[in-house]
Each structure stands twice: as structure tokens, then as C-alpha cells.
Design a protein around this nucleic acid. Structure first.
Length: 305
RNA sequence: GCCUUGGUAGCUCAGUCGGUAGAGCAGCAGACUGAAAAUCUGCGUGUCGGUGGUUCAAUUCCGCCCCAAGGCA
């Protein structure tokens, strides 16, 4: 298996710098695993490393149009291609980002090929939900895919909807492809997770949001909206964007919106921690040195053959 | 100084016709297979401002005190 290093962690924990340092030390290239950095024109609010500060090649950034949606399946396919190319050039891919699902999608054999997504099917079930409610929707799933129904709470309408869609398009229950995927990684991966004390992280988040405001996040959002990105677009679900759009479009008080962005970011960081606690294999505090760790790991690899 | 209205969970408040209390938000924990910065699940003891009194029993009724907001001086 080819080597790959993952640098994950909650927002504002210092992933980008750590990843870049690892790349510089080990002939690596950054592969972003971030559900919103893929969009062009969303720079300030996604905290993309500015081009002039990129000291090594960065991939999977600015690969999508914010007027159209992007999703895990597309990300998975494109990222794997990029990684194959990096390996082909004898360099080390460093997967860095905060979207746990995206990381899993490249690392493990998640299969999205069986059932794609169909707006018509989706709309029909959404209609069904509207008319009969979540309980009936859940029952409909139980009738065709009992395992998924048992796994999903009735309230998680989004997943119930998706499971129904998968069944209809593939003719098979979604649960079929769902077990123990983490046991069979596609790469020889060092999965590092950067952690920080909660209070410290919150302080960094607040500072980062203020910094985004100074750097013109409002202007960036105005430009997106003016450029044909609908407020309902998938890209506009991003934290920071959706709250501030309330100020731009509905005139909500700015300080309240900024506070909402900080709060939403803190809550997001918490969810990320939950994900990475389970997904990661090694956890680094600010005192640990990711470069030294990565070096040692690479050395151990070649030593072992 | 007087009058009024408040003081209950980290915050905003509800409630107890006297039997020691509960929502939302926050927080904590968790889940996560084509929206994932999305979506969802679980978790509620706090001198009910202080202090006396009435009572079998007071956060609830009464007195006094403290604090806040508003009004009159």
C-alpha cells in the first residue's frame, strides 16, 4: 500500500500550518478534505491558505462552482485521482481537512457507485414526507430496508430520505454496503488528529471569525450572491455564509450575526471532535511535533520494507 | 425617600391556588455511506435573592433586608 498522511482536527486548530510543514519536510503535497474549500470564490470564510502562502502544491481546492452543488461521491473520485497522480510522481499525499466524511471516503472503500442521486426520486419522497410526515416516511423505509430503518432515528429525515432513494435506484437495501468499512483502508495511512483544550480552541475560533470579518467576508458573500449563487445553494449552507446572508438579505443586526457565526463554529468544532476521536489513530496536542512524528513514521515504513 | 414590577438552571423565562420545580438556548456525550460547515439522538439538583414569621410542611403566604428596572419626589 502506498503511504498517505492525514492531518485532521477541528476548525482553527492549526491543521493547515502543520500539514504544510509536513509537506515541506517529506516531499508532500496538500490534498484538501474540506467540503467547502472546493468552491471557487469562497476563500475568506473557508479559511483557505492564500495562494501566496502556499509553499507546496494544494489540491482539491477551487474545483467546484458554488452555483452548483458538490458532494462526497464527486470528491472521492477526484481526490483519489489526485492522490494516484501524486504517488505516481513519487511524492507524498497529505490529506488535510475537517470534513471527516470526505477523509473516510478517500481512505476507505466506501462505495457510491451502486446508487447515484436522482432529483426526481428525491423530490417524490420529499413530497411523501410533506404529506404524511416523518413517521410514515420511516415506515416506508422499514418496509423495504429494515436494517437501515432500525439504524436510523425517525427524526433523521435526511438519512431516511437518502436510504429510500438508494433502495429505489439500486433495488438493494443501503445497509448492504455498510459494514466495518474502516477495517480495510486503501492506503497505508498515518491518521493524525490535532487537538486543543476546549477553552483555547474557542478563543481561536472567536479570533478567526473576527479576522474573517476584517478580511472582507461580507464582501465575499455579496459577490457570491451577486454572481448568481442562490441563498438556498448548497454552498451557502456553510457556517459564516448562511448567518451573514441574513444580515445582507434580511437586514439582521450584524453583531448578532457575527455572534451566531462564532457559536455555530464552536458547535461544529465539537461535532468534529466527536468524529475524529473515533476516526483518528494518533492525537497530537500543540506541544507535539507533527513533522517529527511523520518523519518517524515514514522512516519506520521504509525500514519495514 | 416613597410607589410599582421583578430577583427560579451558565442565559432568557415558565411554574408551584403551600407538599422542595421545567422549557428554549448554551453546555456535555454520541451517531454519521452521494446536502456532512449538513442532518440527527441522548443527558435537566438548581442554597427557586437573604433573613425572620405563620404552618405538620414555604421557592410558593406574611414581615423586614439586599439587588435591578421603571415611576413619583
Amino acid at each position: 500500500m502506498r503511504p498517505l498522511i492525514v492531518v485532521a482536527g477541528p476548525t482553527a486548530c492549526g491543521k493547515s500550518d502543520a500539514a504544510q510543514a509536513v509537506c515541506l519536510a517529506l516531499q508532500g503535497e496538500v490534498v484538501s478534505a474540506d467540503a467547502f474549500a472546493v468552491y471557487r470564490g469562497m476563500d475568506v470564510g473557508t479559511a483557505k491558505t492564500p495562494p501566496e502562502e502556499r509553499l507546496v502544491p494544494h489540491h482539491m481546492i477551487d474545483v467546484a462552482d458554488p452555483r452548483q452543488g458538490y458532494d462526497v461521491a464527486r470528491y472521492q473520485a477526484a481526490a483519489r485521482e489526485v492522490i494516484a497522480d501524486i504517488h505516481g510522481r513519487g511524492r507524498l499525499p497529505v490529506l488535510v481537512g475537517g470534513t471527516g466524511l470526505f477523509i473516510d471516503a478517500v481512505l476507505y472503500p466506501m462505495d457510491f457507485s451502486g446508487a447515484s442521486s436522482d432529483p426526481g426520486v428525491r423530490a417524490r419522497w420529499a413530497q411523501y414526507l410533506e404529506e404524511k410526515g416523518p413517521a410514515a416516511l420511516h415506515e416506508a423505509l422499514a418496509a423495504v430496508d429494515p436494517a437501515s430503518a432500525a439504524r436510523l432515528p425517525e427524526g433523521d429525515v435526511r438519512r431516511v430520505l437518502r436510504a429510500l432513494e438508494v433502495h429505489e435506484l439500486s433495488g438493494a437495501p443501503m445497509s448492504a454496503g455498510l459494514r466495518d468499512y474502516r477495517s480495510a483502508p486503501r492506503y497505508d495511512a498515518l491518521y493524525m488528529v490535532l487537538i486543543r483544550p476546549r477553552a483555547e480552541l474557542c478563543g481561536r475560533i472567536d479570533g478567526r471569525v473576527d479576522e474573517m470579518m476584517r478580511r472582507g467576508l461580507l464582501e465575499e458573500i455579496r459577490a457570491l450572491l451577486g454572481g448568481g449563487v442562490s441563498p438556498d445553494a448548497r454552498a451557502m449552507q456553510a457556517i459564516g455564509y448562511k448567518e451573514l446572508a441574513g444580515h445582507i438579505l434580511q437586514g439582521a443586526p450584524l453583531d448578532g450575526c457575527v455572534a451566531a457565526v462564532k457559536l455555530a463554529t464552536r458547535r461544529y468544532a465539537k461535532r468534529q471532535m466527536t468524529w475524529f476521536r473515533r476516526a483518528g489513530s494518533i492525537f497530537l496536542t500543540p506541544d507535539d511535533d507533527p513533522v517529527a512524528l511523520a518523519r518517524a513514521w515514514m522512516a519506520g515504513r521504509s525500514g519495514a520494507g
